[in-house]
Design a binder for these strands. Structure first.
Lengths: 236, 236
DNA sequence: ATAGGCAAAAATCTCGAGAAAAAATATTGA
DNA sequence: TCAATATTTTTTCTCGAGATTTTTGCCTAT
C-alpha cells in the first residue's frame, strides 16, 4: 500500500524552475497577480514571447500552466486572456475558501502533534513581528506581511492530511491574492487582524475545533466585506 | 457589477473540440480513465505523437491540459507520467468529494426552483430506467448507467451557484471515475444504489437538506468501502 | 447613413528539426 | 567481481517557419 507522503505532489512546487516554460510561467503569474496584465487583457503570444524572451511554443506552454491556476482562460481558437474578475467571483472564491479551510483546520486540530503546535506558534510570532513593522506603510514590509500571513494560514492547516484540500486551497489562495493586490492597496491599513489571529491560535492549541473554525470563517469572510465596500466601479 | 452567469466557465467544456490539442487531450483523458495507459506509466511524447496523429508540440500541450485534471504529473526535465494511484489517495478524493458535494447539495436545496426539481426528477427517472437494463451485464448498458449516474449527480447540485465548487467537484469526479474503472469492473454488480438515490431525491424535494446531505454522504462513502474490500495487491 | 460582404492583416495553431538533458550501456581500473 | 567513469542512446525541451482561423478595414449597394 502506498503511503500518501510518498506520492508526488499534485502540483510541482519545486524551489527553482528547471525549464524555461516554468520560469516564464512564474513570471507571468506574478505579473498577473500584481496587475501588470489586467483582468480581461488579451495575452498575445507574439508580443509576450519577446517580452519574456522565450519561443512561441514555450510561452504557449506557460500560458497553459496558468490555465491550471484559473488565472488565464483559453478560448477555442481565439487565444488566451487574463481571467476576468467580478465581485460575485470573489464572493464565490471566499466562500469556497471558508469551506475548505475550516475543514482543513478541523482535521489539523484533530490530528496535529506537538511539532504542528510549535509551527503554529512560530508562524504566529513571525506574523506578529511583521505587523509591528507594518505601521510605516513601506512597500517592503507590506510584502513581508503578505508572505508571513500566507505562511501562517498554511501552517495552520499543515496537519491536515488531505492533499486534495490543500491543492484546491492553494489555487484559491492565489485567486484571493490577486483580488487583494488589485484592490487592497487602496485601503492599505488592514483591519485589526492581530486579535483574530491570536484567537485562532488560542482555540487551535486548546483543541477547540468548533471555536477555531468559527473564528477562521469570520476572519476570511471579513475580507469579502472589505472589498464589498469599495467603490462599485472599481471592481469592474 | 458582473453577473456570475455571464463570466466564462473555469474550464472550457465545449461540446466539440475546436483544436487538435484539445482533441488529443480528450482521447488521452479517456484512455487514461479507461486504463489504456496504466497508473505510473511513462507517457513518451515521441511514441504518443504517432499514436494520436499530432505533432510533438501539440501532444505536449494535450499532456499539459491533463496535468490540470491531475490525471498526469509532469516532472521537471523528466517528462510526463500517468498519475499514480493508491488507496490513500482514493480515500482522500472520496472524503473531499463528500465535503464539496454535500455543500453544493445544501445550496441547491436552498436555492433550487421548480425547474431544478423537474430536472432532478427527470435525471432520476433516466437513471432508474438504466438500472432496469443493467441486469444483463452488457457493457453498453453499463456505459449508459455510468453516464446517467454522472448526470444525476450533476443535476442534483445544478442549482448550486458556486462555479468553484462545481469546478473542483468536476476534477474529483474524473478521478473517482478512473478508480472505478480500474477496480469496479471486477465487482460488476453495484450494490443497491436505487434506494439510496430515491431517498436523496425524496429528501431534496422535501427541502430537507440535513437528511439529503446525510444520505448523499453515506452514498459516496460506500464506494470507498467497496474498494477497500478488494484484494490488497490490486490497487497497487 | 447603415448594413452587408469582400479583401487584407494579424493572430493563433501546428509541425518538424536541432539543442540540451537524462538514462542506458560499455569501458576501465582496482 | 565490483565500483566509478566515459560513451552512446534515448527522450525531453526549445525554436522558428508555414498553414489555418479570426479579426480588422474598406468598399459597395440599398
Amino acid at each position: 500500500m502506498n503511503d500518501l507522503a510518498n506520492t508526488p505532489e499534485l502540483v510541482t512546487v519545486g524551489d527553482e524552475p528547471k525549464t524555461l516554460a516554468e520560469a516564464a510561467y512564474r513570471q507571468l503569474r506574478r505579473d498577473i497577480i500584481e496587475g501588470v496584465h489586467r483582468p480581461g487583457d488579451k495575452l498575445r503570444v507574439e508580443h509576450l514571447k519577446d517580452q519574456y524572451e522565450v519561443g512561441a511554443g514555450t510561452l504557449r506552454e506557460a500560458l497553459q500552466l496558468l490555465v491550471t491556476d484559473a488565472l488565464v482562460v483559453a478560448q477555442g481558437q481565439r487565444g488566451f486572456r487574463v481571467a476576468p474578475i467580478s465581485l460575485d467571483d470573489f464572493a464565490d472564491i471566499t466562500r469556497t475558501r471558508v469551506l475548505l479551510e475550516t475543514s482543513a483546520l478541523q482535521q489539523s486540530i484533530e490530528l496535529g502533534d506537538d511539532a504542528w503546535e510549535a509551527s503554529v506558534v512560530a508562524a504566529f510570532h513571525l506574523l506578529s513581528r511583521a505587523e509591528d513593522k507594518l505601521s510605516d506603510g513601506a512597500k517592503a514590509s507590506r510584502e513581508e506581511w503578505e508572505l508571513r500571513n500566507r505562511a501562517f494560514h498554511e501552517v495552520l492547516i499543515g496537519a491536515c492530511p488531505s492533499r486534495w484540500i490543500r491543492h484546491f486551497q492553494n489555487i484559491l489562495y492565489h485567486q484571493s491574492e490577486r483580488y487583494r493586490r488589485l484592490s487592497l492597496f487602496r485601503q492599505p491599513i488592514p483591519r485589526d487582524v492581530h486579535a483574530e489571529h491570536q484567537a485562532i491560535v488560542d482555540a487551535a492549541l486548546a483543541r477547540n475545533a468548533a471555536e477555531a473554525t468559527r473564528i477562521l470563517s469570520e476572519h476570511i469572510m471579513r475580507t469579502l466585506e472589505a472589498v464589498r465596500q469599495l467603490p462599485a466601479d472599481f471592481i469592474n
